[in-house]
Amino acid sequence: MKGPLFYSKILLFGEYGIIKDSKGLSIPYNFFKGALKRNKNNSSVAKESNSALAGFAEYLEELTEKEPTLVSFDLERLKKDVADGMYFDSSIPQGYGVGSSGALVAAIYDKYAEDKITVLENLTREKLLKLKAIFGKMESFFHGKSSGLDPLNSYLSLPILINSKDNIESTSIPSQNTEGKGAVFLLDSGSTGETAPMVQIFMDQMKNEGFRKMIKDQFVKHTDACVEDFVNGNVKSLFGNLKQLSHVVLDNFKPMIPVKFHDLWKKGIETNDYYLKLCGSGGGGYFLGFTEDFEKAKEALKDYKLEVVYNF
């Protein structure tokens, strides 16, 4: 048995902001992927995944009992498959902000949900919001609290535009210009980040009136502008807004940026060779970089592993 492939995702814009109703833009990233497999793979990774799936199956049973109108699963088949050694075979790195648990949630929903909303039907806003709600409840098993966006992106394999909490739509983004010099890239921090503690730090900071004001007046404002610019292909304006956003993040999200990256972050803003931002909750994993000249950025960041996501 091998299930269909589900891809990783990248939240280009909206990390933390979407908790406070900023816009967001999430795109599938086909470089990493995962699929459910069932064979007698005795590797430690397969065993660990199988054991996590057993816990997840129990959690889904409780979820079905608690919220029968939201979602129900063929639990008997799921449990049998788990008992037969099913695991999630994935190249998506965990703790890197590219949606490893999201792809797993999408795969389980796709295979075991009853009356599932399929990718082929007309995806109205209501259906998208219902899927997002289901996925949020499912993924909270892994993170404590989830918006449901990562699994939604993985499940649909389409760019998703978040206008607000209750207004999401699949969207198209400008085609990549493979000849272009500009790029969006991932920078590997070399360490993993834990989502739950980072979100907790953010929530604690939100109790502070000054921080709340900064989120509303600066962070959300620049995030929204970046989303508009990216979707509409306004590259010049995009980089102006990215510079501001990178600055706001460096000044106000220091706990989410490992100390050794503070100077690197600042250097990008000062030289305009690249701008860095969080990819997911931060703390480690990947950071997102944006540059109008990838060769220049590559030279400036030659000590780090970079992976191009999108070309301008």
Rank of each mutant, 00 (worst) to 15 (best):
Ser26Glu: 15
Tyr7Met: 10
Glu194Ser: 11
Gly285Met: 03
Leu36Gly: 01
Ser146Val: 06
Asn122Trp: 10
Lys277Pro: 00
Gly99Ala: 02
Asp303Asn: 10
Arg212Ala: 08
Asn42Trp: 00
Tyr275Asn: 02
Ala35Gln: 12
Lys221Cys: 08
Lys9Glu: 01
Ile19Val: 15
Phe135Val: 03
Phe239Gly: 11
Leu60Tyr: 06
Val259Ser: 04
Ala106Asp: 05
Leu104Tyr: 02
Leu63Glu: 13
Thr178Leu: 12
Lys79Thr: 07
Lys137Pro: 00
Asp21Val: 10
Asn42Lys: 12
Lys80Met: 01
Ile117Val: 13
Gly17Leu: 11
Lys130Leu: 09
Gly14Cys: 06
Phe202Ser: 15
Ser140Tyr: 00
Lys127Glu: 07
Asn41Lys: 01
Asn42Arg: 14
Glu209Asn: 07
Gly283Val: 13
Gln176Met: 14
Ala107Trp: 06
Tyr29Thr: 01
Asp263Pro: 01
Leu75Asp: 04
Tyr274Gln: 05
Gly34Tyr: 11
Ser100Trp: 11
Glu114Met: 08
Glu307Ile: 15
Glu228Leu: 06
Lys207Val: 07
Gln205Cys: 15
His247Ile: 03
Ala300Val: 02
Gly284Phe: 11
Gly282Lys: 03
Tyr274Thr: 10
Lys111Met: 10
Leu152Asn: 02
Leu250Gln: 03
His143Arg: 03
Ala225Trp: 04
Val231Cys: 05
Ser154Gln: 12
Gly233Phe: 09
Ser147Asp: 11
Gly14Glu: 07
Tyr7Ile: 11
Ser191Phe: 05
Phe32Val: 13
Gly268Pro: 11
Leu120His: 08
Tyr286Ile: 08
Gln94Arg: 07
Leu288Tyr: 15
Gly34Ile: 14
Met1Ser: 02
Asp81Met: 12
Lys2Arg: 13
Lys2Asn: 10
Val235Trp: 06
Ile173Pro: 00
Gly240Arg: 13
Lys130Glu: 00
Gly233Cys: 11
Gly210Ile: 04
Ser246Glu: 01
